[in-house]
């Protein structure tokens, strides 16, 4: 494990904690896209099928359990918690997630390393994770005032993806590897989706004004 990978995982963990903090303590999910959260729950459920078949490390298993548990509980909170669900912007969060799920599944069925159930599911999760943030970005664009926690959540998620790219570059030069360009392309696409958000995030930070994305 290199420093970029660890920093990436910690940023990812921090993003989840920020979101849980907002939902659990403020009892609000305003500005949070349920569609994106459902997609993440599906991403982890399909990617971590190996949790029961392969053991990598205690760290790996614990982190997988955290990401599975947190993503499903966030979805549960937004859908069912008696107070939290009232703050959900249902009318704004209109992105149809099957428009992302179906193409990702088709792509995974045709473009993968091995045609096995686990491998296709793993590839599907990579493709889906790459685009899962889109409903959240669309929702942010529609939200006039983005609160600090929601802004930080998206920023941390973007930082996590960026750090993973540094991790791959580092591993490329230091470890034996075979080509897995699928991971590279999905990861780069995912990071690029945040470029626009990062630009406005830093602008608002520099000018000390509230974050707002242009429509």
């Amino acid at each position: 494990m290199n420093i970029f990978r660890l920093a990436g995982d910690m940023t990812h963990l921090a993003s989840v904690l920020v979101l849980l903090l907002k939902i659990h303590t403020i009892k609000s999910c305003a500005g949070v896209s349920l569609k994106t959260q459902e997609l993440y729950a599906l991403v982890f459920a399909t990617r971590y099928l190996d949790i029961v078949t392969d053991f990598i490390s205690v760290y790996n298993t614990v982190m997988k359990l955290i990401f599975l548990g947190s993503s499903f509980s966030i979805v549960w909170y937004i859908r069912h918690h008696r107070v939290v669900r009232r703050s959900y912007d249902k009318d704004q969060d209109t992105f149809r997630h099957y428009l992302l799920m179906i193409p990702c599944m088709l792509l995974a069925l045709f473009v993968h390393e091995k045609f096995t159930f686990k491998e296709v599911m793993w590839t599907f999760s990579l493709y889906l994770e790459a685009v899962a943030i889109l409903p959240q970005l669309v929702l942010l664009q529609r939200t006039r005032n983005i609160d600090n926690l929601t802004g930080q959540y998206v920023f941390l998620l973007g930082a996590y993806r960026g750090l993973y790219i540094f991790n791959w570059i580092y591993r490329y030069f230091t470890e034996p590897h075979f080509v897995h360009w699928i991971t590279w392309i999905a990861g780069v696409v995912q990071t690029l989706l945040y470029a626009d958000f990062f630009y406005y995030y830093f602008e608002s930070w520099k000018n000390n004004v509230r974050l707002q994305l242009p429509a």
Binding site: R5, D9, H12, D50, D54, I56, S57, N60, M63, K64, F67, W122, Y164, N167, R171, E175, P176, H177, F178, H180, T183
Partner: peptide, 10 residues
């Protein structure tokens, strides 16, 4: 064989 294939990542 201990090739890096990304499966040890999260």
């Amino acid at each position: 064989r201990n090739f890096y294939n990304g499966k040890d990542e999260l």
